[in-house]
Write a protein that binds this DNA or RNA. Structure first.
Ligand SMILES: [Zn+2]
Ligand SMILES: [Zn+2]
Ligand SMILES: [Zn+2]
Ligand SMILES: [Zn+2]
Lengths: 160, 160
DNA sequence: ATGGTGATTGTTACAATATAACATATCATG
DNA sequence: CATGATATGTTATATTGTAACAATCACCAT
């Protein structure tokens, strides 16, 4: 994801792919699950569960914490979203077509989260795990800092 | 850390180094902070804040959540402990002498957390961040799975 | 269509994690 | 001792996440 882009494409692609994968897998993309996925995809920020709860209430008056957490559990099991461990928050997955591990770049300034496959990092990590004789089940690689756009803005402010 | 080791060495080293670094830095390793650090070092498991709270109460009857979280904040600022983001928990740092980024291997079976420097992983990650033009402020790399000892045990159980 | 079964959602209650705000006490130092 | 900075006490509350059980819905076989 670059800073400026046609975000409605992001949303449409994510929802279409999710819908298609659910059909293939024989699982249900119910209204609640689809609405939560849409809310997560409103932008590229990490979203908090209780923010989702507030934002889904106009659509689902009966929504409670469990409503959201169940939908999030489902979307995670299906690989449609990732949990950002260091923020207790969630983002939409940018590549539903390929099984993958991801590097998350989390901008402190604009709050965007960029997902990268970072194959060379994953290879180095796989080697390190072999060295350690550690059998991995799941991996979380998260970096906090400033994205390209925000660090440029910051530098411009300094020199101004 | 290997599975079987003289853990009192781990504790002594950690406390001695912390004490020495606090003197050098002109900061105070108060009773509360030292006790929290000792409690964290009781083993190599990740420790929860409220577990620490219960366990410090015999020593600090007035302890409240803020007591623990302040001590944890201090110990983190000084680099004496790491936060395990994916567990909302804390572990003692195994190398107080060197500034470093760490890979955390978290065993689901025995709950031990192994800290590794994983220099090659960090190098690959640094390159990836340059590619992404992302300015990193902090990094969290955490892997959940089975440690060497526990995966062996598991295999033995299977074949038995 | 009907009934059974598993999946999904509703609902209530609560557990677990973390911070804010302000008062009090302690420490280092001149 | 007086002072300001650091550390702790205290109360209250915010945030994040689950447990448990009831009700409903989707799907399939009769
Ligand atoms: Zn987009
Ligand atoms: Zn940014
Ligand atoms: Zn040890
Ligand atoms: Zn283990």
């Amino acid at each position: 994801m670059t800073h400026i882009h046609n975000h409605s494409n992001c949303i449409q692609t994510a929802l279409n792919n999710a819908s298609q994968l659910c059909s293939q897998r024989g699982v249900q993309l119910t209204d609640i699950r689809k609405q939560v996925l849409e809310l997560i995809w409103e932008n590229h920020h990490a979203v908090k569960a209780y923010d989702l709860l507030e934002r889904i209430k106009p659509l689902q008056a009966a929504a409670k914490p469990a409503t959201i957490y169940r939908a999030l559990d489902f979307l995670r099991e299906q690989g449609f979203i990732h949990r950002v461990e260091s923020l207790n928050a969630f983002i939409g997955c940018c590549d539903l077509k390929t099984a993958h591990e991801q590097l998350l770049l989390i901008c402190k300034q604009c709050n965007d989260v960029e997902e990268r496959h970072a194959d060379l990092v994953m290879q180095a990590l796989a080697q390190e795990l072999r060295n350690a004789k550690f059998v991995a089940h799941s991996k979380s690689i998260e970096v906090h800092g400033l994205c390209e756009n925000c660090s440029q803005t910051f530098n411009e402010e300094i020199s101004a």
